[in-house]
């Protein structure tokens, strides 16, 4: 093995390590939606998603309390005031490209707003509405 081969091997190993370290593979928001819809066993409804997003479910907050009624713009955390980037994927390319991250935030935020986790159908509804928001 000559020097440059070794260098190349090391570079490949490092790159592989970096990919592993960052973990999640990027996916398209539509793939995440397809997954939720399949689990729900029914097609999603953007109108129902909008309704869920903008309604308080017996608690203090709705999803819109932090994300804004129009999640095409930046929102603001209802308790800390920290800026929250736009949620609709057409306005923020990072959104819904990592399934673990998407699941984590649905789990936390549904619990904050509804006092329970959302069902697959509810998640599909909300995501289908967000995906329908276009510039």
């Amino acid at each position: 093995m000559n020097q440059s081969t070794i260098t190349r091997c090391v570079a490949a190993l490092l790159l592989g390590g970096a990919v592993l370290a960052t973990g999640a593979q990027a996916v398209a928001p539509a793939e995440i939606l397809a997954g939720y819809s399949a689990q729900a066993g029914a097609p999603p409804s953007p109108a129902r998603g909008q309704q869920l997003f903008n309604t308080r479910h017996g608690g203090e907050w709705s999803c819109a309390s932090c994300h804004g009624a129009a999640p095409t713009q930046a929102g603001k955390h209802a308790s800390t005031g920290k800026a929250i980037g736009a949620l609709a994927p057409a306005f923020n390319a990072e959104r819904f490209t990592d399934l673990a991250r998407t699941d984590k935030w649905f789990r936390r935020n549904c619990n904050d707003v509804m006092g329970r986790e959302c069902t697959y159908a509810e998640k599909a509804d909300v995501l289908s509405w967000l995906l329908a928001l276009k510039p």
Partner: peptide, 12 residues
Amino acid sequence: LQRHYGTDASLD
């Protein structure tokens, strides 16, 4: 973290 100052901030 599940009851983190009024919000669910749970992690794996």
